[in-house]
């Protein structure tokens, strides 16, 4: 019954897959994300994180007041490299504190 009930549609993560991760001892959102791939697709966890949190609480695997979603990282919206590239020159070139190269990297 759990093989086609989806928690994360972006990466096709079903309840069955969450069960497998839990069976291996992984019970935090960060761990389950990294074992199942949940939350790593186009929506970056917007649709599934709450549902996963709910599942962990309902099964007694996590305390509601101790739960946190995985680290919020930019971009919250997909953004093109072309647009980002355009910001490079005016935004950063004039900054005086830019260091040429303190490290010996190429």
């Amino acid at each position: 019954m759990t093989a086609r009930a989806f928690l994360c549609r972006c990466e096709d993560v079903t309840l069955g897959e969450i069960d497998r991760a839990i069976d291996r001892g992984l019970t935090t959102i960060e761990e389950i994300k990294r074992y199942t791939g949940l939350g790593t697709g186009p929506c970056q966890g917007k649709e599934c994180t709450g549902a996963l949190a709910r599942l962990l609480v309902d099964r007694g695997l996590a305390r509601a007041d101790a739960l946190q979603p995985f680290t919020a990282r930019p971009p919250a919206e997909p953004i093109t490299l072309g647009l980002l590239a355009a910001a490079r020159a005016p935004f950063f070139a004039a900054r005086p504190e830019e260091d040429p190269d303190p490290k010996d990297t190429p």
């Binding site: 009930a5 549609r9 649709e47 599934c48 549902a51 072309g82 647009l83 935004f91």
Partner: peptide, 28 residues
Amino acid sequence: PRLHLVRPKHIVFATGAREGMIPLLNND
């Protein structure tokens, strides 16, 4: 296409809420 860089003194998040998923068979 426009890129906006904003440096405010106060940020107010009024981003609302969304509908997550209900894990049902064939919910996709």
